[in-house]
Write a protein that binds this DNA or RNA. Structure first.
Lengths: 139, 139
DNA sequence: AATACTTTTGCAACAAAGTTGCATTCTTAA
DNA sequence: TTAAGAATGCAACTTTGTTGCAAAAGTATT
């Protein structure tokens, strides 16, 4: 379990550094998506703000995490599931849920995004679905 | 046509001011969703930055515009269609499309968001769907 | 049309978020 | 173990968003 983070980094051909391992641990321990700020409050004393920005950027590029759009100017990040990581090319197909009560954003891995028909001339590369409401914990 | 902006303001019980009319005009003239920044570059010389923030906030609350989530920390806004405005309570049901080439975000008013089944215990209040790809102009 | 009242605006000051360049430190691979 | 390359921390800066308050503009009433 300890080594899970290291494995992820090695699989993505990234050097294994303390900050990267720590940030991965934070994601592995989290049950919800995290904004930059969430990560900062958890380890700003250990690592520089800039390092966190750059690490998240790197993880995104490598497909280790994916980002979840929002209407509140707070992009959140979550670990990609295995399929996601191994294929390298990222293609999220699950719905994201944001609870209006507790504010947590979670990946509903079991809920697939239904197919959509775009008008003629439009080509789809990526699709994102975010649902707001009340989660099962707050209900 | 000139008066369209005024009508919208009056229907929403808002006082008619120059900046509000101007910002509405910008939206009416735009064929795509606008970020705060877009609006600022179009009229920062005439109106204060703070006024633009507050105006967008007011328009959102009154349901004149709706916001479109994004993964780039740039929430965009678009005019609501008539149904939206008249019902007062906002409920967007169309898909948004962001073109990777030209960067424009548009409302696909004719494409409805397909129904989704959430797991037990989750209640849906709002739903957002954003598709990325190549738009018909860039194709 | 003038008034009193309310709302909106602009300014200033600030807080928070994000970026960049560069010197230092850490990783990796030979 | 060491040389080369990559990542980090720091400092300085830019951009984005917020708040309080006085001045200006809008609204409703007479």
């Amino acid at each position: 379990m300890q080594k899970q983070g290291e494995d992820i980094l090695k699989n993505s051909a990234l050097s294994v550094t303390a900050s990267r391992k720590r940030i991965l641990e934070i994601f592995l321990a989290a049950d919800n998506a995290l904004a930059h700020q969430d990560i900062e409050t958890k380890c700003a004393d250990q690592y520089d703000r800039v390092t966190i920005y750059r690490t998240l950027q790197t993880f995104l590029e490598k497909g280790i995490i994916h980002n979840i759009p929002s209407t509140d100017n707070m992009v959140r990040y979550a670990l990609c599931n295995d399929a996601c990581i191994t294929t390298g090319h990222h293609h999220d197909n699950h719905v994201h849920f944001r609870c209006d009560q507790c504010g947590k954003t979670v990946c509903l891995d079991d809920v697939n995004i239904p197919p959509v028909n775009l008008p003629r001339g439009y080509t789809m590369k990526e699709i994102n679905m975010v649902v707001n409401g009340i989660c099962k914990s707050c209900k």
